[in-house]
């Protein structure tokens, strides 16, 4: 598999000037202002193969957008470097961004005063897309994102969801092999969100596109990303598959069993821990790797008659929350 994106010790520092409040502070700032260096991204390393969909997540202010901006040639790294298909987005900006589609959920890259269609026409010239490809891509986009419905509307009149559809279409009109999506589902209703997820899946399937996705909606991650990279305070704290992460941080599964009759004595099992026992309802926990649900059920059924069972999978939100909290403590 060819490597598509590679970051080596990628670092970004911002110089922040401390602004003192009030008139006196304003004068003070004129003469001398206190500057401090803030490291938003700190020596991160990763390598992403062609065709991967990677979830890039972390709490607010973790440095996700800053990373995306460095990868798309907007911000120059303070040190370290990043290459996209072998090229540096800062040194060969024009060459690298030609292979790139970028969507910033919080800001549009469409031309505010133009009709959506005119924005597309301009993009077609910017990327020198030939007629056949353009028509074909427009057709595909129309199928997934229903672009025809909004193509004649000026961008400033589009609703957030419509605009996002337009932005997504604009980002892949030139069939880029690499796409960065910075919060593409922010503020979208369930329908549009579904449509966006479908869109990401489709282009990844059809074109083998490499995709990096930042989001705060873990549903996006669950549905789309085989691999997740977690960043906190500018540093990568985890880089693995969602499954590995879940196994590590939430190795247990819960089983709730309702019996026909409340047992006389507390239940004890060899392969599962009893969390609670209230009347005829028993709540059990066991390691899902070591113990199969069937074994646990069987062990109970040996002495009791079971009326109903339900399984509770550990929740991805809880896991992520644990990880964020853990990293904040250690920082």
């Amino acid at each position: 598999m060819a490597v598509s994106i590679e970051a080596k010790n990628l670092t970004k520092e911002f110089i922040v000037t401390k602004k003192e409040p009030g008139l006196k502070g304003a004068f003070k700032n004129l003469i001398h202002s206190e500057k401090s260096v803030f490291r938003a991204v700190n020596k991160i390393n990763f390598s992403i193969e062609e065709g991967q969909v990677v979830g890039y997540i972390g709490p607010n202010g973790a440095g996700k957008s800053t990373t995306i901006k460095m990868m798309s040639g907007i911000l120059q790294p303070t040190s370290g470097d990043v290459t996209i298909r072998g090229g540096s987005p800062f040194q060969d900006r024009k060459k690298v961004v030609r292979n790139l589609g970028v969507v910033f959920g919080q800001r549009t890259q469409l031309y505010w005063d133009l009709r959506l269609g005119e924005s597309f026409e301009l993009l077609r010239r910017i990327y020198e897309i030939d007629d056949a490809t353009y028509q074909r891509n427009l057709g595909i986009l129309n199928d997934i994102l229903n672009i025809q419905e909004i193509i004649d509307t000026p961008v400033r009149q589009l609703s957030l969801g419509q605009r996002m559809r337009g932005d997504l279409a604009a980002a892949i009109l030139h069939s880029p092999p690499v796409i960065f999506l910075d919060e593409p589902t922010i503020g979208l209703d369930v329908d549009v969100k579904y449509c966006v997820r479908q869109f990401i899946k489709d282009i990844n399937d059809q074109y083998h596109t490499t995709i990096i996705l930042t989001t705060h909606d873990l549903g996006d991650i669950e549905e789309l990303c085989r691999r997740i990279i977690i960043i906190n305070h500018g540093e990568i704290v985890h880089d693995c598959s969602l499954e590995t992460l879940m196994n590590e941080f939430a190795p247990n599964r819960r089983l709730i069993v309702d019996l026909y009759q409340a047992p006389q004595e507390p239940i004890e099992l060899r392969n599962a821990r009893v969390i609670s026992q209230e009347g005829a309802r028993i709540c059990l926990e066991y390691n899902k790797k070591e113990t199969s649900t069937g074994d646990v059920v069987e062990a109970i059924a040996a002495n009791h008659s079971i009326q109903d069972i339900s399984i509770e999978e550990s929740n991805i939100e809880d896991v992520i929350r644990t990880i964020y909290a853990k990293d904040s403590e250690s920082a």
Binding site: I74, V97, F104, R107, T108
Partner: peptide, 13 residues
């Protein structure tokens, strides 16, 4: 307005 970002991600001068 921070729209320089939009200019930078296009392969144009």
């Amino acid at each position: 307005q921070g729209n320089v970002a939009v200019d930078f991600i296009k392969p144009i001068n």
